[in-house]
């Protein structure tokens, strides 16, 4: 079966620095994958290569077997990849509802867009603050707004870069629940440093280190892996 997304020897060099080095990565339809690794290991760069924000220096990215290497971000988004970026990219001057409406509107009729907007507001529990200007919300709330815009886009692959950052314990639980719910109909790749959160959602985990894949295995095996402990987890018992 053709994988949903595939990176083949994907490499990203900035000047003399190789941020992502010959990464081979495969994700199947409806799969949920967690990506962990030290800050600076190349996870966010890898996401940017998948979404067209960066054009790989070499190697290829395939979406359902179709070569999307070098395609523009909006073209890749139209194929069905949505991303919540690490540093929130939201429309700060617009309201929560407007943010989601813009995401829902592309390629949809007015009625469809309106329906998706209201459904997404409810799903992300943002109805109560729908009229607020996003730039004036707290950081964790803006994370929710961004996740909601990605959902309103109705992508087939959802990339979440640190979705739980800046969220309270209770919100982290809710995010985990939402991710499992999304996974019933969509595939996801989730980058996160919060190991409690990872344990709540993860089955298979890929570990990045220094631009390469260090380990790829089931969650228990990865958290028990000595190399992963050395470079990433530290002394705390995982």
């Amino acid at each position: 079966m053709t994988p949903l997304i595939q990176a083949q020897a994907a490499t990203m060099r900035f000047g003399g620095v190789t941020a992502v080095n010959h990464v081979d990565f495969t994700l199947g339809e409806m799969e949920l994958r967690c990506l962990i690794g030290p800050n600076g290991a190349g996870k966010s760069t890898f996401f940017k290569m998948l979404t067209g924000q960066l054009v790989p220096s070499s190697g290829a990215v395939l979406f359902r077997g179709r070569d999307i290497t070098g395609a523009a971000p909006h073209e890749i988004a139209r194929l069905g990849i949505g991303i919540k970026t690490q540093v929130p990219n939201v429309f700060n001057g617009l309201t929560v509802r407007e943010n989601i409406a813009i995401a829902a509107a592309r390629g949809k009729s007015v009625q469809q867009a309106r329906r998706i907007t209201e459904e997404t507001l409810t799903r992300a529990r943002l109805t109560g603050i729908a009229q607020r200007v996003v730039g004036q919300l707290a950081h964790g709330q803006r994370q929710w707004v961004e996740i909601a815009t990605v959902l309103a886009q109705e992508p087939e692959l959802v990339l979440l870069d640190e979705p739980a950052a800046g969220m309270t314990h209770e919100e982290v639980l809710r995010t985990a629940e939402l991710i499992r719910e999304i996974n019933r109909s969509q595939a996801l790749i989730v980058v996160e440093h919060d190991m409690q959160f990872i344990r709540m959602i993860a089955r298979r985990v890929t570990v990045f280190n220094q631009g390469s894949i260090l380990v790829e295995d089931d969650v228990e095996a990865v958290l028990a892996n000595q190399a992963v402990r050395d470079v990433y987890l530290g002394k705390q018992a995982a």
Binding site: H74, T85, V90, N92
Partner: peptide, 12 residues
């Protein structure tokens, strides 16, 4: 407001 986000939502 945010060109990157608009691109990532599929707008040219």
């Amino acid at each position: 407001e945010n060109e990157t986000r608009a691109q990532l939502l599929g707008y040219d």
